[in-house]
Design a protein around this nucleic acid. Structure first.
Lengths: 207, 207
DNA sequence: TCGCTAATGTACGAAACGGTACATACATTG
DNA sequence: CAATGTATGTACCGTTTCGTACATTAGCGA
């Protein structure tokens, strides 16, 4: 073996491949042997670093959520008017979902399992708050200036935006099949992006 | 064995339990033995009637989609104004999703597997058209009367409504965990239902 | 009522699968 | 440069899991 030892590299290699396979095949559908085969190391290392299949899955989940949190924290809307800010938030959320399908699929997988693993990862508690408070702040500004309606809740707005974005990525297979429409095609994506912005702005500016 | 033979009953018993288990555990997570154990018959019958695990899953999928089609076909909106009609469609879709979580979860499961099974069921081709054409008709009426905007596509409207409804059921576990909110609680459900109607009507009546 | 077929039950097999025991090589440190 | 613990590879084990061979029973038509 020419390959020199590199614990961190082995760990991240395992995590990367595992993320791909768990998101593609689901938790139960993923095979430990297949994950190992596609890395430059062996199955033994999964047990060495993560304890087992579930431990690896938890690590994948945590890493994926951590990445999304970083993206959210890099999102600033202070310099925009409330109306522009909500549109920007909606559009960036939209882009983020389309650009990270593996993460969205992982969330679906976790929901199939009733979120039973998510609850085991302490570090993910209250992970939603940044997104909600950013929206909350923008809504408060809009409420004060009279540009946005005053009877909506930040979490409800976030949920509406998320649902629209998640659906496109998570349900593209069945929806595409039933309606003969590829939701991931560039032109369709562009139209949906604009529509989402219009809907959100229209909703929040109505009085 | 007092139980008399009843092929149809055995078949439907298997289908019912399989629907529950596949929707709860996913395709790979479901166990043939567990399904069999929870029916009044044996595993042997799964192979006798459905050929195997995949055949059973396909039958479950087909039955579930058939049921939803029947519901959709029973939805009439001719007697309502275009605006009332879209709100009614949105609200009934919302109710239908909340009332049939097993079906929604099955769709998620199928998407995890990239819709690979759905494509094998010939009878499900163009299953989406009824829903789209109902909306199309209402949109046409609204366009003619000037009550609804004329630059929206029925499938896009359907997608927006579906995404909102699907999310609440399919992602309640992770969303509930991250935001500490139970989307299936009666009062929350009632608010979300109203919000959806408001959003859709607001969107389609804007000019 | 007799026989034939649809329907059902039992027991078992082969492969897949998650996991582990054991040996070993590398690298760091004293 | 010896010693020690980290990191890695190989081979294997026990169980689970899908599937099937074989036997049997119930009911229907002749």
């Amino acid at each position: 073996m020419v390959q020199s030892r590199d614990a961190e590299r082995t760990r991240s290699d395992l995590l990367e491949i595992a993320t791909e396979i768990f998101s593609e095949q689901g938790y139960s559908g993923a095979r430990v042997d297949e994950i190992a085969e596609r890395t430059r190391t062996t199955k033994r290392m999964i047990y060495y670093y993560f304890g087992g299949k579930e431990g690896l899955y938890l690590a994948v989940l945590e890493a994926a959520y951590r990445r999304i949190r970083e993206t959210e924290q890099g999102l600033h809307a202070d310099h925009l008017s409330p109306v522009d800010a909500v549109r920007r938030i909606a559009e960036l959320t939209f882009d983020h979902h389309h650009d990270h399908p593996a993460f969205i699929r992982l969330v679906s997988v976790e929901n199939i399992h009733h979120g039973q693993h998510l609850g085991k990862v302490e570090s993910l508690r209250d992970l939603g708050t940044p997104a909600a408070s950013l929206l909350d702040e923008v809504l408060a500004r809009g409420r004060a200036s009279g540009e946005l309606r005053d009877d909506v809740d930040a979490v409800d707005v976030h949920m509406m935006i998320s649902s629209y974005c998640v659906f496109q990525v998570a349900n593209s297979a069945t929806f595409g099949f039933l309606f003969g429409r590829d939701m991931l095609a560039p032109d369709v994506r562009e139209r949906h992006r604009r529509i989402l912005g219009d809907i959100v702005v229209g909703w929040l500016t109505a009085h």
